[in-house]
């Protein structure tokens, strides 16, 4: 097991859309968005099984999500977290003075974190904002 560096993008998925409209505080939303989609090749490099929790870290923050195999692929070297609080914990807030953060194209490192949990929405928010206990 070792850390890998990868380019992170975020965006919509239909599961994210459905879960979002069904209630962001619900567990379904965590399951739809608290994930990172990676390619087989990248799984091999990382040396973990699919559906393992990983810690994603960028210059902007760090978050635990579940690594799953990309449903839409292949795209080695590019990982995808659906738009939502998990992605936003690590995406780049650099705007180049356009007002728009760089939601797509943040360099991140991924490390296995099988013992850490993917936080539910509200807990994640509170932890991120006020450092409340996990």
């Amino acid at each position: 097991m070792s850390a890998i560096s990868i380019n992170l993008i975020s965006g919509r998925t239909i599961q994210q859309g459905v879960a979002m409209e069904g209630g962001k505080e619900k567990d379904k939303y965590r399951k739809a968005c608290g994930i990172i989609e990676m390619d087989n090749e990248d799984f091999k490099k990382l040396g973990v099984m699919k559906n393992t929790n990983v810690e994603v870290t960028s210059a902007y923050g760090s978050v635990v999500v579940k690594a799953i195999e990309a449903t839409q692929g292949p795209h080695p070297g590019v990982a995808f977290i659906p738009m939502g609080p998990w992605a936003n914990t690590v995406v780049s807030d650099e705007t180049y003075s356009t007002g728009m953060p760089t939601f797509k194209g943040t360099p991140v490192t991924i490390e296995p974190a099988p013992d850490k949990q993917v936080l539910p929405t509200i807990k994640l928010m509170r932890y991120n904002c006020w450092g409340e206990e996990q």
Partner: peptide, 28 residues
């Protein structure tokens, strides 16, 4: 610190410019 901040610092202090990816890894 953000990547650009660190990068600017490196550039200002040491007069060298390194790629954001490298800075990001260094911050990690």
């Amino acid at each position: 610190p953000g990547v650009q901040e660190v990068r600017a610092f490196i550039s200002d202090t040491f007069g060298i410019d390194i790629k954001p990816m490298q800075v990001s890894r260094f911050i990690d």
